[in-house]
Computed example of a mutant assay.
Amino acid sequence: MLDLALDLCNDMKTDGINWNFVTYDTLIKGFCSGGRMEDGFKILEIMEESKEGSRGRLSPYDSVLYGLYKENQLDEALIFLTQMGKLFPRAVDRSWRILSLCEEGAIEDAKKVFGQILGEGRVPNVLVYDHLIHGFCEGGYMREAFELMNEIVGRGYYPLAPTFNALISGVCRQGQVSSALKLIDDMVVRGCKLDIGSHNPLVDALCRKGDFQKAFGLLSQMLEKDIAPDFSSWNSLLLSWCQETSWLARQNMFQVNYLLQQIVEI
């Protein structure tokens, strides 16, 4: 009820009650997490021009970062992070170090910097969490990746689909297909939109395990949801069919012909 919240805050001004940091912080967080970035930026500007200001606290700016991240405006989020360096040089420098180390694959060094931030009692921003989760998944540190995912959700941040997809790919590489399927279910429950990156690793993993029936069913679900499988998924399934003709013979040939027709159309 963002408009009602803003009306109430305006009533405070009418009654001569000045907004304090909590007022600004709450409004900025509400607007940015609710997808109303323009309103969030307006409140941030009002806060910066007021005597109250941010008082050296990062939370309103981290809320803006999360809002941009949630709207998938990642380039804008990185630009805003750079601009934050004027007010919070130490915090921003460490954030950039973690982002850069994750991009370089130096995940152990990134963990050390992350530990320093936590050791100082500071809360990392959503970009730091996101890059670390991707870095952990790429490096095979799946336990740490899941711990960070739980932590980021606990802090009120909701990850984007590519972050979930990184976890799915990571557990599939380790052969933990059941965990990947549970992640898919979790994404659906949370309202996260599934995409090609959510399904491809599962199809490949199921085919490698020889579970052609589940792979076939998953591919059918993708087509029903208008998610077009890419070459990798089709190739994995067709190679598996060629290696397991007895499974293919047991299937409803109408279904098989339907899927093959989908391949031709794509």
Rank of each mutant, 00 (worst) to 15 (best):
I28L: 02
D15C: 01
Q213L: 13
V171N: 06
R36A: 12
G156S: 09
V153M: 12
G121Q: 06
G85I: 00
I133D: 01
S232R: 11
C242H: 07
P89Q: 02
L78H: 11
I98Q: 11
F88G: 03
Y141N: 04
D195H: 07
R94L: 15
T14Q: 13
L202D: 07
I79N: 09
V128R: 04
K51P: 01
E138S: 12
E144F: 06
A110H: 04
E103Q: 14
L238A: 07
R36E: 12
V264Y: 10
S33Y: 11
L248C: 12
D62C: 09
H134Y: 02
Q116P: 04
K193N: 11
L8A: 07
K13E: 13
V126K: 02
G217N: 12
Y158R: 10
I168M: 02
W96K: 12
G170T: 02
S220A: 14
N20I: 01
E38L: 08
V177L: 08
F31R: 01
F254V: 14
W247I: 04
K111W: 08
Y24C: 00
L65M: 09
F212T: 09
H134A: 03
R250A: 15
L68R: 13
V189T: 12
E38N: 03
E224M: 11
G56F: 11
S59G: 00
A145L: 02
V203A: 09
